[in-house]
């Protein structure tokens, strides 16, 4: 037991043995004497010029009048519970998000989506000369229209520039 006390005061005792040694202090007052002597030796080696008397007997005497202190268990337990609860909520939220995302891409929907995407993929093909008018007329429905932005509009205006001379015809007529 003395060797365990020596290791305990250095913080080098195996964790499993700590409780056993601390219990022994309660049961056997002789173990406390070893604790006191070993600490005194350390204090003398570190500070030989300043050795105080043993106050523990006097403090013990005064503590007889003191009520037994009892920390509200809630303090420590509540703190641990709060930490546990927060981490549990965070974990559950993460699992929920992952589950929701995996449901969105379920095995039944996934192939359909893949097919749709394949269908949307731009195909390269030769444009027939006679289909040019059709394409120009419907270019606003082209997927590339969004990307081109104003370019489409500019092309449409330039196309209609010939038409812009039309209003002048009546004026010519009027001149005639």
């Amino acid at each position: 037991m003395k060797q365990e006390i020596s290791a305990l005061m250095d913080g080098e005792l195996f964790e499993d043995d700590v409780g056993m040694v601390l219990d022994q202090f309660k049961r056997d007052p002789a173990t406390r004497k070893n604790w006191v002597a070993y600490h005194l030796i350390g204090d003398v080696l570190r500070q030989p010029d300043h050795i105080h008397s043993d106050l523990s007997a006097k403090v013990r005497e005064r503590m007889q009048d003191e009520p037994v202190v009892l920390a509200p268990r809630g303090h420590a337990v509540k703190q641990k519970m709060r930490t546990f609860a927060l981490s549990a909520v965070a974990s559950l939220s993460a699992v929920g998000v992952v589950a929701w995302m995996s449901l969105q891409i379920s095995p039944e929907i996934a192939p359909q989506m893949a097919m749709q995407q394949a269908a949307l993929r731009p195909a390269s093909m030769q444009i027939q000369p006679n289909s040019e008018d059709y394409l120009i007329a419907h270019q606003e429905f082209s997927p590339s229209a969004d990307v081109n932005g104003g370019a489409t509009y500019i092309r449409a205006v330039s196309y209609s520039s010939d038409e812009a001379t039309l209003p002048s015809k009546p004026s010519e007529n009027q001149a005639k």
Partner: peptide, 9 residues
């Protein structure tokens, strides 16, 4: 009591 013995000096 053990804490007192340890830290008294």
């Amino acid at each position: 009591d053990l804490l007192v013995s340890k830290y008294q000096r």
